[in-house]
Design a protein around this nucleic acid. Structure first.
Lengths: 117, 117
DNA sequence: CCCGATCGTTACGGGGCCGTATCATTATCG
DNA sequence: CGATAATGATACGGCCCCGTAACGATCGGG
């Protein structure tokens, strides 16, 4: 059951949601951070720094720094893996889940307003 | 003719396209720059710095700097308005149109791959 | 004609993110 | 036990973006 969307509709949707994001003071996430956040909340745990780095095709420091920033915003938490203390397990938070849900609402709402052109 | 999309589909779409953008070396635009680019290419000309600033809810220097960056990438061009030499008219370019088209293809392709959940 | 208003740009200080290289900690294997 | 590998964090230098404030150029009304 694929989602049929015309290129012009896709652009309108993309633009409108981005306008919303720019004006929303709480949405200060970069493209990379958004990709990380959604991967954490959509793919099955556990998530590690290394796993996210290879999944996104970026270096590990990118993930570490993004987790620092998102941690300050309360969107994710880190905990050491007790079975292998080298690993760090990234955990979801209530605030993070709310942010993801907010984004989903934003996209669906703007999609609903799209015209046929 | 609204576009019906479920929240879970919206999130999957958003995530997948963002993963593509992160891995695409040519896509180095921030959220703000993307909003500006799409506004220029989707809304009717003429576009001015002041108009874009008020449309996005940001200050004028933000627009000026974004146009500088996007100009270096060849995505837009500026020209002084001869009738009122205080104004600057932002113009589209072939490279910018291609970039917008590429984004549209990306979104539509990923939407087509979505499952029903 | 002049002075205020408007437009876009630039200057400044601050902060964030990047990639590479390196580090400390921990696990693994001979 | 000791050497090696693996994991995540940190240091460094560089670049880009931000918001505020100021600036030069241009227009327009009195």
């Amino acid at each position: 059951m694929a989602l049929e969307i015309k290129p012009s509709q896709a652009l309108k949707l993309w633009r409108q949601v981005h306008l919303d994001l720019v004006q929303d003071a709480h949405s200060d996430l970069s493209v990379r951070q958004t990709a990380i956040l959604l991967t954490i909340y959509l793919e099955l745990p556990p998530h590690t720094v290394r796993g996210l780095a290879s999944r996104l095709g970026v270096t590990k420091p990118v993930i570490t720094r993004a987790l620092d920033s998102m941690g300050k915003l309360g969107l994710v938490t880190r905990r050491r893996d007790e079975t292998d203390k080298r690993n760090v397990v990234i955990q979801r938070t209530v605030a993070g889940a709310l942010a993801v849900e907010h984004l989903a609402d934003l996209v669906t709402a703007r999609a609903r307003e799209l015209g046929p052109a």
